[in-house]
Design a binder for these strands. Sequence first.
DNA 1: ACAAAAGTGTTAGGCCTACACCCATGA
DNA 2: TCATGGGTGTAGGCCTAACACTTTTGT
Lengths: 230, 230
Amino acid sequence: MSENRYCYKYPHPSVTADCVIFGFDGVSIKVLLIQRGIEPFKGMWAFPGGFMQIDETVEECARRELEEETGLKNASVEQFYTFSDVNRDPRERVITVAHYALVRLSEVKGGDDAASAQWFAESEIPSLAFDHDRILRMARNCLKERICFEPIGFELLPEVFTMSELQNLYEAILEVKFDRRNFYNKMLKLGILTEAEPRAEQASRRTPTKYRFNAAKYAELKQKGFRLEF
Amino acid sequence: MSENRYCYKYPHPSVTADCVIFGFDGVSIKVLLIQRGIEPFKGMWAFPGGFMQIDETVEECARRELEEETGLKNASVEQFYTFSDVNRDPRERVITVAHYALVRLSEVKGGDDAASAQWFAESEIPSLAFDHDRILRMARNCLKERICFEPIGFELLPEVFTMSELQNLYEAILEVKFDRRNFYNKMLKLGILTEAEPRAEQASRRTPTKYRFNAAKYAELKQKGFRLEF
DNA sequence: ACAAAAGTGTTAGGCCTACACCCATGA
DNA sequence: TCATGGGTGTAGGCCTAACACTTTTGT
């Protein structure tokens, strides 16, 4: 018999943090999944996640899991909902605090567990373990809403990017199409973009202008209270 | 020694649901607090809340607590964040899933615990137990953001209300002032309000027009995808 | 009589949308 | 040479913001 040394007067649930990891390859949104090596749901795909230690917060737990899976230390990780259906885990009562992380594909080396970790385009995501299908749907919705308030998109792009990449990202997240000129104008008028390296002399007309996100100007605007609108 | 019959291999946190209960008296936002009768933080004010039972979800727990405090059964309750700082409860490791509820003051009879429950205007809220100050700040922010997407305000008003009351509510939640005429026009153009009882014949010019929320029209608009803007 | 609340309309400016052509390059 | 992607400007409509006076009633 295993030693069950932690005893309580009332039953306690386990608490896990799961992490929906979003990336962007320049065209479409990707999600990092890992294939479960153990029961339950052995062989099925799921989000990285694990049990919260007694001396860490759920956010710390999510970051720890993220680092183990992707090697990333400073990604943007945010909790968005806590799932607590009574039977969501067949083993025991587990509630999970779901997070999403925005990472740059280019910076992901693949973690310890890389063998079983894989990026999926949204359209190719298989049916997932536990209630992770539902978690994914909510994460996706949160992303949509959040991008209307904060320029989270820049976390998904390389530091230097083209306007088309940015537009593709917004279109992918919001599932709409924008007129190219209008998108350019709106973005430039917002004033949170800076042109990166003044385009090389020999730059052909075909070479797109590169931008980077201007966090300072964004902070300034935010202070004055404003909203991104799309 | 108390009987500690629930034993686990690893330490488990306790899980609670707390409920920030918002009301509106026609002028300002109110919050329902209860005075703690036991340690820790005995005598201090806090949100209603309690331990999640092993056979209920956190939302069910929040609704149960809400009903115990206010007698309300069908209020709008929504979770918004999970607080898991390691030392947020001095007794043991407790993580709490914080919810907010929107209730009509007129419908609150006062619950079992009414003796120690009290409505506070925002400006009069004392310093709170645990990390409830922080929870309140986040709840307040959520309210601000949510009202830009959904007409949650109507949950706080009586079924039939005047345009001024509605404007006061929006101004209280968003902490801004609107021009009265512009607010009227915008609201009426949105089309989610219906005039309640055609104003009595003898209605004086001083008697304000009464409206009610038109949920059907709202659902219709929402389907087509639109946003409330303020 | 005076203060407080409700009803009502116009104008100017800004923002959003829709839309088309040219150039350079790589295949 | 053709297809692709990037760069660029304008006109019309809609929404927003700013703004004042009248009426009624309660005090």
